[in-house]
Design a protein around this nucleic acid. Structure first.
Lengths: 342, 342
DNA sequence: CTGAAAGCGCTTACAG
DNA sequence: CTGAAAGCGCTTACAG
């Protein structure tokens, strides 16, 4: 960068010292600057289009107003909803959000937390399912601990496996409730599009659903639990593979909405009538997908609110950390899972 | 922040000077550090979990590796797609992205560019339609100019009204092409859900569509051009108001996909059969909405690619700036606009 | 190859 | 109320 106007320039133009210029510009806590000088400084700053150097301020103040946010993929509406909540809340506190997408690359979260740490972010928020890779989780935990040891505040939106404040979505209970609801609608023969095998979020949803089916005496054959990517195309492909087996099921649970929509597309492409030919349910209640038809039965997660809560939690000087906040999902029945005629 | 390990600590532990420690850690261009010392420094840094202070580096180097990204709403899939492209390309260049949402607040873009400027961002990208507020545009232009005068590089994704490199989506031509296509499908009586009156992007799409209809001798009555917010709910409400007038039209063009989906919901809620009862077309080709049914006819914009291009443009040391890159949309005909029986 | 020292642009005790 | 000066944690000519 070249040619930027410094506080020095402002002070000189106003005919005051650096200290006075600094105080006039951001009214330092205990100091008051005489009205006349203050005016002169402000005018000089305006005339020069002075903009303070945030790094110099960070150095002198030993802290910043930056939130570091790590997530898996901003184009995924799940993450963009959480990010929107984070950004909304950040703005009300005058904080700037630096965001990094892992693209599901292992180790990326740790790298990014390191980057946020180097930037003296005041808060770091890590959102996304943990995996079954213990070593990776340990490394991330270590980096977060180092960040907090330096005075930063970290919050995870994930399973509670990190040594920081955590917002944990109750995937298991949500999926269980959904399973019970589908049973109540008359369904007994289920299949599950299970998502990636190593993702804890996917595993929890499958487990919860399986529990409900078992508890009510329904049927969920192991070969009808089909793994695959956590994406629209993953849902599409998993549904295709499932259909190839001509399964005797009346209802498919895709472990997130994006996959459920892919599954619906696959069903249609195979000529299955929806919702009569197959009931489909998802998870998350993605806003952008609320108008698919038939409207998708799902488990609503308050994603934006979770993002905002993460910021509030980080900024709240509570004792007894790390704290755990559990967020429950709520089953929303829509047209995609009609009652099964008895 | 407290207790952070500094380069000083590393140097002391390794028994070398600050200069040597610095050189060992990031192999300064022209200097080479002896292998033995280098080893000692790296080991000391690892043992202490040293993480360089990015602000101190920024101060000393007089630049950062930060991209400032301003957009209207990250939860809107249009913007999250662009953001994903920006972040993907940023990562390949080792750049971090700081993002700010304007929430459509007037003046917010200017404020955020100011913030990015204070942070010595190396690149600033402003994405979103300009409005008809000349004064606001002028202030933003001024702030961007100041940013570039200090050595930063700015890129706008918007109408070419800013004195910086610009990626401009050809809304008018896209809407015109869409109008012609719909005419070719047999439609003659149109309505438009026009979006916000002050948004240039909305206005351009309306204008392009109107041109096509006029050119082909179709009908688009002024009272059938209904304004409203650029959102799903905006589309829903606008469609309701349109239906209240019992318009004699066979095809509705919503100026973006999100609105189009809202419009489809409104039509369904009023008992209109889709697509037979009303053809609906949108604009953008939002990925998350590709599975609505009937599948939406739209104008595809390569949003992610535009985000990536913005970064490349900023990093490219081209002459003759500001440069203008026009991006064309491509009409994609799907089931929501069936051919009208003659 | 290695080090002492200046400098990046601010803030903030410490004096006056 | 105002100012001179130290300090934040790095990098990088400049010497050696």
């Amino acid at each position: 960068m070249t040619g930027s106007v410094t506080l020095h320039d402002v002070a000189r133009r106003a005919g005051v010292s650096l200290a006075t210029a600094s105080r006039a510009l951001n009214g330092s806590a205990n100091r008051v600057v005489g009205e006349a000088l203050r005016e002169r400084v402000l005018r000089a700053a305006a005339e020069l289009r002075y903009s303070p150097n945030a790094h110099a301020q960070a150095m002198a103040r030993r802290r910043t107003r930056i939130i570091g946010l790590s997530l898996h993929d901003i184009a995924d509406p799940y993450f963009s909803a959480v990010a929107a909540g984070v950004m909304r809340e950040a703005e009300t506190h005058g904080l700037l959000v630096t965001m990094a997408s892992t693209g599901h690359r292992p180790g990326a979260e740790t790298d990014y937390v390191g980057a946020f740490r180097r930037h003296w972010a005041t808060v770091v928020i890590v959102v996304g399912s943990r995996t079954d890779d213990r070593a990776a989780t340990d490394r991330l935990a270590e980096e977060l601990a180092a960040f907090e040891a330096e005075g930063g505040r970290a919050v995870a939106v994930s399973q509670p496996r990190l040594p920081v404040d955590t917002i944990s979505i109750d995937n298991r209970a949500g999926a269980r409730d959904l399973g019970h609801t589908l049973h109540d609608l008359g369904h007994r023969r289920f299949a599950v599009l299970a998502g990636p095998a190593d993702l804890l979020t996917a595993a929890e949803r499958v487990d919860g659903f399986r529990e409900a089916v078992a508890h009510r005496g329904g049927r969920l054959a192991p070969e009808h639990v089909v793994p695959g990517p956590f994406t629209r195309d993953g849902g599409y492909a998993a549904m295709q593979r499932l259909l190839d087996e001509e399964p005797d099921v009346s209802c498919v649970f895709a472990v997130n909405d994006v996959m459920a929509v892919g599954a619906m597309a696959a069903l249609r492409d195979r000529g299955v009538d929806l919702p009569a030919g197959m009931a489909v349910a998802g998870f998350d209640d993605i806003a952008t997908l609320r108008d698919v038809s038939p409207a998708l039965t799902t488990v609503r997660i308050p994603l934006e609110e979770i993002g905002a809560l993460a910021v509030r939690l980080a900024l709240d000087e509570g004792a007894d950390r790390p704290r755990l906040r559990r967020v429950a999902g709520e089953v929303v029945v829509r047209a995609s899972t009609p009652r099964l005629p008895a």
